[in-house]
């Protein structure tokens, strides 16, 4: 696979990264560098701050389900130097995947990590607002996982709209309260009319 026209060789990045932060690199290929998940944020921050790589922007981040593990892929780019770096982190735990959030370094991770959390189920520690984004709280499973349709009892699509499901209050589309103040939260609860709230759980 030819790397992108402006993509930096993973070996070169890995070499410099290892020199600055010993032990952070797990493997490296021509295209990407794999870093230790626990030290991901350190690596990202170093790349962001270093004048050699100047990875100022998180271009893209997404996860790949490899059946037994998850791969989180970050495409960083430097606008001034016009190059691109691919960073990967492998999450070994397929049941309860978790990774430190890149939000501390890149604000652009805010929505992208919410998307990954929603569709892949990876929990990002340190993310300021980790909620599902496309699907509603209480949606069973994470649809982009390879075993999603194997969860049992599930067919793609919904039989009903979520707020019609009065027997299952947890499925009612109910977004998080606005973090305005405590009274806002109380009001928020009142905002939902009774007949939308569904029957109270027995």
């Amino acid at each position: 696979m030819p790397p992108g026209p402006t993509q930096l060789s993973g070996h070169r990045v890995a070499e410099r990264l290892n020199a600055a932060l010993p032990g952070v690199v797990v493997t490296a290929t021509d295209e990407w560098v794999e870093v230790a998940p626990a030290r991901l944020v350190d690596a990202l921050r170093w790349l962001h701050d270093s004048s050699e790589f100047d990875a100022a922007q998180l271009s893209n981040c997404c996860a790949v389900d490899r059946h037994d593990r998850f791969e989180m892929v970050y495409h960083l780019q430097s606008l001034d130097l016009n190059h691109q770096i691919a960073i990967k982190a492998t999450i070994a735990d397929h049941e309860q995947p978790a990774l430190p959030s890149a939000y501390a370094v890149y604000k652009g991770a805010l929505l992208q990590e919410r998307e990954v959390y929603d569709l892949m189920g990876i929990v990002f520690d340190g993310h300021p607002d980790l909620r599902r984004i496309f699907l509603w709280e209480g949606f069973p499973g994470h649809p982009l996982r390879k075993d999603f349709l194997g969860l049992g009892n599930l067919t793609p699509g919904l039989a009903r709209f979520p707020f019609e499901d009065r027997d299952r209050p947890d499925r009612i589309m109910n977004p998080a309260p606005l973090r305005h103040d405590a009274s806002a939260r109380a009001q928020n609860e009142q905002d939902v009319p009774d007949d939308w709230r569904g029957a109270a759980p027995a």
Binding site: D54, A56, Q57, S78, L79, D80, L81
Partner: peptide, 8 residues
Amino acid sequence: TAVGGLRA
């Protein structure tokens, strides 16, 4: 015509 980032 020149691309660049913050410095540019």
